Amino acid sequence: MGQVDAVKPLSRRGPERRYLVIAPSRDEASTLRTTLDSLLRQTLPPAKLVFVDDGSTDETQAILAEYRERMPYLDVVRRVDRGVRKVGPGVIEAFNEGLGTVDLSQFEFLCKLDMDLDLPDGYFEGLVAKMDGDPLLATCSGKPYFREAATGELVSEHIADEFAVGMTKFYRVSAWREIGGFPVSIGWDGIDCHLCRMHGMRATSFPDPELRFIHLRPMGSSHISLWHGRMRHGLGAWVMGTPPLFMLAATVYRLNKRPRVVGAVAMLLGYLQAWRQGVRRFDKPGYLAFVRSYQHLALVIGRTRAAERMRQRAAQGGRAPSLDGAMHGHR
């Protein structure tokens, strides 16, 4: 069990517009100040920030001590050092431990936040406005960019519009509860978006310039290497329920993103290894069939239209549209 530092009272801004940030982190001292500074600049600050130190061995605790006076809403949960950074399920385990220290009913929104980001000043206020504008919106985010080391150019990480990114997974609390919380699984940040659609809700990342943020460690690079990160992405796609035809199409699409060949090959290899080894896929009643129908449909009419059509059918309680029916309707 984690050890919680002295608990501070919640800020007093009324029950509305209150959002809780839970930030699982291990050994991210090199980027931690940048992310904390971007939180301090928010036009709509968090009501509570629970920082879950997952056994850091660097200067994380010293840096947090520097920010305590400026962040009265900061609580720190310290976990025992497991000796290794655990991604995927390990991140959600740490997140859940942090969540267990607060009363979620006091908040309207919930965010799982990575500590290697530089967020624009109006980021969370912008996400709340998006939520207010669409009552069916369960989770959302902006689009991540990373800075090219050689040129300083900002490069998009090419996130599909139908997914809210895991690094700033912002939820309506009621929707998060409806899907049963985050799955403790690799690929959790894609699985949850599929679950939202299965419940008739929307999951979205918005391209609005004011919601773009900088990812200080490019997505898919992992803490070990880019090859390892892309292999893990392929494994996650398998666990998430991605069918082979869609995975092949995604691999071809990946050739348009740098590093082109290496990234695509590693992603496909991770998927094929998981398939060959019989890695268990995430499942709950109807889930795998839903994902398969959605992704096959997306190959015909595009991801955005397919996601909305599947969501609407789920909301109406109908079965997912067949591929043949989709092709007929698209002619």
Rank of each mutant, 00 (worst) to 15 (best):
G200P: 05
P209S: 09
R280H: 11
M267C: 05
P243I: 08
V291G: 01
F290I: 02
P285W: 03
G234L: 04
G236S: 12
N256W: 14
L272T: 09
M247C: 06
L216T: 06
R212G: 07
L245W: 14
V261K: 04
M231R: 10
L255W: 12
V239K: 01
R202M: 15
V291S: 01
V252P: 03
S225K: 00
T242I: 14
L272P: 07
G278M: 04
H199G: 02
R260F: 11
P207V: 11
Y271F: 13
T242K: 09
R281S: 02
M240H: 07
P244Y: 07
S221I: 12
A203S: 15
Q277N: 13
G220E: 00
M247L: 08
R258C: 03
L255P: 07
P209F: 08
Y253S: 14
V265I: 13
Q273N: 14
A237M: 13
G229R: 04
R232G: 07
Q273V: 15
G236I: 00
M240A: 14
S205D: 06
V262Y: 09
G236H: 03
D208W: 13
G263C: 04
L268V: 06
L226D: 06
A237K: 14
A264R: 04
R254F: 07
R254I: 04
G220C: 02
R202K: 10
G270T: 02
G229C: 05
L211R: 10
L226V: 05
S221Y: 10
F213S: 02
L268K: 12
I224V: 15
S225L: 00
L211S: 04
R276I: 12
V239L: 02
F246S: 12
R276W: 14
T251N: 03
F213K: 05
Y271W: 09
L268T: 09
F282L: 01
L211Y: 07
R202W: 11
L235W: 09
P244A: 06
V252Y: 10
S222D: 11
G220M: 00
R276T: 12
T242V: 12
Y287H: 05
D208M: 14
F213C: 03
P285F: 00
W227L: 15
G236Y: 00
V279F: 08
A250P: 01
G241S: 05
V239A: 05
R230L: 01
M240I: 07
A274H: 03
V265T: 02
F290H: 15
H223P: 02
P209G: 05
L255N: 10
A237L: 10
S221F: 11
L211I: 09
G234N: 03
K284E: 12
Y271C: 03
S225F: 00
P207M: 10
H228E: 14
Q273S: 13
G263M: 04
R202S: 15
Q273F: 12
L248G: 12
W238R: 06
R281P: 03
W227T: 12
A266L: 04
H233V: 05
M247Q: 08
M219I: 13
